[in-house]
């Protein structure tokens, strides 16, 4: 079957979709958006978390056909989403354009293997969108559907606190503690 929907503001179309395919498979294998991750495919890890019409959902549990005509935001669209909300993207040669949550995860050391990271970013981004100054318990509850096997979650909490603090800053104001002073980083294109 053919499936057409909007991803990160762009209309995407996929043909010859098998009816049993999930939104996750279509994003990863048919639309060239592998950022959402395939860790459990049973809704028990949150690595494939995307926004579907604004709601955080596990893309592995949405049938591709159900997304027809709807709007999806993936980790690849977080920076645009932040811009639309009027948040200031990160500056600097290396991480230009990262959303505040993305930048905070890098700065706080919340990324190790990184496989859980895209899902956590989408979930954390939604949390801060709705709750500008979440308590630690709020952060833990909001992220309780996202497993991480590397970090023990401490730096993830740090990252979300940092992102919330930075997002709460009026535009143009200096960001609070940017985490450890460090060399910047930059990646080549894929």
């Amino acid at each position: 079957m053919r499936v057409t929907f909007t991803v990160n503001g762009r209309r995407h179309e996929a043909d010859d979709v098998w009816e049993g395919e999930s939104l996750l498979y279509v994003l990863r294998e048919r639309m060239g958006l592998p950022g959402s991750k395939n860790a459990c495919e049973q809704g028990e890890c949150g690595s494939c978390t995307v926004r579907l019409d604004g709601e955080s959902v596990c893309a592995c549990l949405v049938a591709a056909g159900q997304v027809e005509g709807r709007e999806v935001v993936t980790v690849e669209g977080l920076a645009d989403l932040a811009r639309q909300r009027g948040e200031t993207p990160a500056e600097g040669a290396a991480d230009a354009g990262l959303s505040p949550v993305q930048k905070a995860f890098v700065d706080a050391g919340a990324v190790q293997c990184g496989f859980c990271t895209p899902g956590l970013l989408v979930a954390a981004d939604e949390l801060i969108e709705h709750n500008a100054s979440p308590s630690d318990a709020d952060i833990r509850e909001a992220l309780s559907g996202n497993l991480c096997r590397c970090t023990g979650y401490e730096t993830i909490l740090d990252a979300v606190r940092l992102a919330a603090a930075r997002t709460g800053q009026p535009a143009g104001a200096g960001a609070p503690d940017a985490g450890p002073d460090a060399g910047t980083s930059q990646g080549g294109a894929i």
């Binding site: 958006l33 592998p34 690849e76 920076a79 496989f115 895209p118 985490g179 980083s185 990646g187 294109a189």
Partner: peptide, 19 residues
Amino acid sequence: STLRPDGTLKVTGEFAYAS
């Protein structure tokens, strides 16, 4: 405490995992 050189790729979803 320098930051990961692959950190930016990992938070944008561009980092190419085996799958």
